[in-house]
Each structure stands twice: as structure tokens, then as C-alpha cells.
Design a protein around this nucleic acid. Structure first.
Lengths: 182, 182
DNA sequence: CCATATATAGACCGAATGGTCTTGAAATGG
DNA sequence: CCATTTCAAGACCATTCGGTCTATATATGG
């Protein structure tokens, strides 16, 4: 299944043909349809998996027993990593799906919208904890900072498709974080 | 031609079929191929037009005889507008193309990369002028602020696909700008 | 008014699409 | 050791894809 996810990830939904999925999953045509229904259902499964992985990663990074600022730094570092070199060129299944399918596929809409809310909620939480610890710069609101960060990291995934240079991504992330913390 | 651009804009490259283009351009199959070569060439033309429009808009917003901060506010307001309601759901041809085709189509790569550089350059310029006028907050570097803003606005285009609410976009943009200016 | 150029509608092409179904081989279990 | 289930390989299906080409209608120009 994650093999299927990888294909959708690197090629996108429309550009993924059935033979691509068969090759990746090493399943026969019949078995794939028996197991997953059809291409669309399989795609939704892959998308769910991708989302679950992303949120699970955040839950580790933002674990309650960890310094909120360390969590944020790890979170940004993760995006830098995923945005550099080959990883960057591969892009992000979520962003690609949002651009390709959102607004035309209700199932996709729900998942994408849900993911952004979930990510925002986690960011609000960690930023609130940072503020409680007196580590937020004056005038920074967790809610709006969280929305800014969501847009920023997703935008990195877009820009990173053609300019995946680690050092600049790193510096840019640091610079944004610097505007929020003290 | 801009009719063709509109179709690619709302549907994406792969999902745009020839009949869609014929309906939009009101051209016959033969005439369309005589005029533009093939689907791919027509798409590149549409992308060029989209990019030219975006850069021309920035040149107006960031005109030298205008207050840099007013220019930045207009720039953000433009993204809020394009990100709200139906406009938001329609998305952004550039972001969609970056996710769908970048890394697999050299012509597209050049154009997308060129656009991001051009946007960044314009932002650096307007931010430098703001700094010269003493309107930048302490510690804000035009170059890194420009890169942050590029990521931020492109990320808005992604998030806006499923959550295109004007008020929140506006507030979020304002909040980011607030971190940069004084 | 006729000759020529132009653009239309749409037939047509091979290839590829997502999806189904048949056939045969390989396991599995009693 | 045989009966049964399971799965793989791939033939097959209708449809659609991008692209070409022909026949027809509409302008255009002398």
C-alpha cells in the first residue's frame, strides 16, 4: 500500500497509470482490484496514510514533555529535509493533491481540509505552550502565527519543487522562526 | 489564448482534454493545431501569459513612486482577493503547474523557477526601499524576508484551495507583515 | 459571378486509459 | 495425493486520449 502511495506521490493522481501501480505493488490487475476496489479508492487510502504519517511526525516533534521551541525547530528542520535535493523535487503528495483534485473531489476536499486544520491545531498548541513559557516575542498570537506557519511550510513545498537548496531553506525557516520567538 | 489559459487554470494540464480547449477557444481542431502546434505548446503559451500578468501586477504594486509599505499591502491584498471564495477554489495555475509538471518538463521548470526568482527580486527591491525609509523592523533582512514572503503567499494558494475565507487570509497576511515592519 | 483562399465540422487514427474476466499455475489443507 | 482455494498473467472491453486529415461551407478578392 505504501508502495502505491509512493507512486501517487512522485507522479500525481492523473499521471499515475494502472501499470505504474501494478509494477510498484507487484500485484496482478485482478488482485489489486480485489484488494482496493479501484484507482480512486486506492488513492484515498494512500492519501490517508500520507496524512497519518505527517500528523504522527508532528505528534512526536511537539510531544508535551519536550521544549516547545525545540519542537518547532525540529518541525522546521523536517520540512527543510523534505524540501532538499531529491526529496524536494519529489514534492508533497498533499500539496499536489490539493492543487490537482481539491474542489472537484469531495472525499479529497474533506481530507485536505482536515489535515490543514489538524496541523494548525497542533501548531496552536505548541505555540501556546511556548508563550506560557515566555518564549514568544511580544505581540505574537499563537492562532495567527500558526496560520502563517501552515502557509509558509506548504509554500516551501511548492517553491522547493524547482529550487530545492537545503541551506537557503534552512536559513529561511530560521528567519521566520526568529520573528516569532525570543 | 487567454481562453485556453483559463481552462488550464481551472483544470490543470493533464485533466484538460482537447474538447475542453476547443469549447473554450471556439476553434476547430484543425485551426487550434495550426495556430498553436500542440497541447503542450499551447500550455506553455498560457503559462507565459499567466506569469507575465503576475509580474506586471507586481510592477504596478511596487512602482518606484509609491510608498513601499503601501505596495506590500496592495500585494498582500491581491493575494487575499485571489484566495477568497470562487477565486480561491480556482487556485493558481503556477502552483498547480509546479506540483504537476515541475521536475518532469524542462520547459516548465525554467518558467516556474524564473517566476519565483523574479518575484523574489521584486520583493527584495521593495523591502530594501522600505528599509531605506526606516520602515523595516529591527533585524529584518530584505533577502530573507522576501524568501519568507514568497513561500507564504504560495502556501496561501495551497491552503486557499479548501479554506478560502477572506477574513482569515486578510488577518493572516496582516499578521505576517506586522512582523516585518514598524 | 466566379475563383481562390480560409476555416469549419467531424471522421478517423493508433495508443493508452481504467476496469473486467478467463485461463492456468501454484499453494493450501484434509 | 487429491480437491479446493488463491492468485498471477494477460486477453479483452469500451472509452478517451492527442493528433491528422478530408470534405464542406464561408469569406475574400478580382
Amino acid at each position: 500500500m505504501e508502495r502505491a502511495m509512493n507512486v501517487f506521490w512522485t507522479r500525481g493522481y492523473h499521471a499515475t497509470a494502472l501499470p505504474d501501480l501494478l509494477r510498484a505493488t507487484k500485484l496482478s490487475r485482478g488482485s489489486l482490484y480485489a484488494a482496493f476496489g479501484d484507482k480512486h479508492s486506492l488513492f484515498l487510502l494512500a492519501l490517508d496514510r500520507y496524512i497519518a504519517d505527517a500528523l504522527a511526525r508532528m505528534d512526536v516533534e511537539f510531544a508535551p514533555d519536550r521544549e516547545p521551541l525545540d519542537g518547532l525547530r525540529a518541525y522546521f528542520a523536517g520540512y527543510v529535509e523534505r524540501n532538499s535535493g531529491a526529496n524536494g523535487r519529489r514534492g508533497c503528495l498533499l500539496v499536489a493533491t490539493a492543487m490537482e483534485l481539491a474542489g472537484r473531489d469531495a472525499e479529497v476536499d474533506r481530507r485536505i481540509g482536515g489535515f490543514f486544520s489538524a496541523m494548525e491545531a497542533r501548531l496552536i498548541d505548541v505555540l501556546s505552550r511556548a508563550r506560557a513559557a515566555g518564549r514568544l516575542a511580544a505581540g505574537v498570537e499563537p492562532a495567527s502565527a500558526a496560520r502563517i506557519i501552515v502557509c509558509f511550510v506548504e509554500g516551501m513545498r511548492v517553491v522547493g519543487k524547482t529550487a530545492p537548496t537545503r541551506i537557503i531553506s534552512q536559513a529561511t525557516g530560521d528567519a521566520l522562526l526568529d520573528r516569532f520567538i525570543r
